[in-house]
């Protein structure tokens, strides 16, 4: 029997597994970011594969802004139960005490306090020297230039002009005290790769990705789902049920839904292939200004 050569997806899978193992072998206190989205779901699946039959040898960290879709939280807990990984959930306590929310404080301030600062707190508290994330290079222009093992200084910021050269698959994992590494095992995957992999590996996702009638309101051209009674309706505004789904999951008041009839994975993939809008457009935080993602990353946003 002659073994076959690897397909594109098998190659990507093996490379990601190699990266995950390198993290486990090289760092003292790694942690994996778990956002409950599709990329995180792929990452979780890859981590289970990388260490099988061992359990994932590091905890998964969820930064909970308290404004996530309710289903994300129940799905998250179900996954932790099913696969037996160590789950850490962190919310910025000051942000919580001050009632920071996307309505009163605006998306950028809310994101800074409840996401960026919360993440920093969690990473500092856990003294994690490596944080694994599900970012991909095809998502955004500044990410296209980021290393797989991306160095962060003691204040968690990224210096794009001073990145370590990354050759072959020889990763420089060395750190000085206080420094840390962000690691992106699916850097070389595209959105289509992620979806086809989810399809071929039958990876479970939150149903929010699939179309169904959901209560939404329209705000400056974006459909927002009213997920709980904290949502501030404008005078005269009433949520109406529309057949929608989400291409990306996050804080429900900041995550745009798209009108869709795609209720199965193949339909989603077909719809995505036919669409002419990139996936991050549904995230309101990126459209502030050109270069906004790069700026956020320098400040420590994942």
């Amino acid at each position: 029997m002659t073994p076959a050569s690897l397909t594109h997806l098998q190659t990507l899978e093996a490379e990601s597994i190699e990266i995950l193992r390198e993290v486990a072998a090289s760092f003292e206190r790694p942690v994996m970011m778990y956002s409950v989205g599709k990329d995180s779901s792929v990452l979780l699946h890859l981590a289970r594969k990388a260490f099988f039959p061992s359990k994932i040898p590091f905890p998964l960290l969820h930064v909970n802004t308290t404004w996530k879709f309710r289903e994300m939280i129940s799905f998250r807990d179900a996954m932790a139960e099913k696969f037996g990984f160590d789950l850490i959930s962190h919310t910025n306590p000051e942000g919580l005490a001050n009632g920071i929310n996307p309505f009163d404080h605006g998306s950028s301030r809310f994101t800074d306090i409840m996401k960026t600062q919360a993440l920093r707190q969690a990473l500092n508290a856990g003294q994690y020297d490596a944080a694994i994330g599900g970012a991909r290079r095809d998502e955004e222009k500044s990410r296209a230039k980021e290393r797989i093992f991306s160095h962060r200084n003691a204040s968690h910021s990224w210096d794009p002009k001073n990145q370590r050269p990354e050759l072959w698959r020889v990763f420089n994992t060395r750190l000085n005290p206080g420094e840390s590494m962000r690691v992106f095992p699916i850097s070389n995957w595209t959105e289509l790769d992620v979806w086809t992999y989810i399809y071929s590996e039958d990876i479970e996702l939150p149903t929010l990705y699939y179309a169904k009638p959901r209560p939404v309101v329209e705000r400056s051209g974006t459909l927002i789902m009213v997920d709980d009674d904290r949502f501030r309706l404008e005078p005269g505004e009433t949520p109406r049920h529309e057949m929608v789904r989400f291409r990306t999951l996050g804080d429900y008041p900041l995550t745009g839904a798209i009108r869709s009839d795609a209720t199965t994975l193949p339909e989603i993939i077909m719809e995505m292939q036919a669409s002419r809008t990139s996936e991050r457009e549904g995230r309101l935080i990126d459209s502030d200004s050109v270069g906004s993602m790069e700026k956020k990353k320098q400040e420590g946003y994942f």
Binding site: R137, E140, S142, A144, K145, P160, K161, Q163, V290, E294
Partner: peptide
């Protein structure tokens, strides 16, 4: 991709596409 590059009109780092 990087802001510095857009300003200077040059490419200063490897970008993957």
């Amino acid at each position: 991709g990087l802001a510095a590059e857009r300003e200077q009109g040059i490419t200063i780092d490897v970008a993957y596409r």
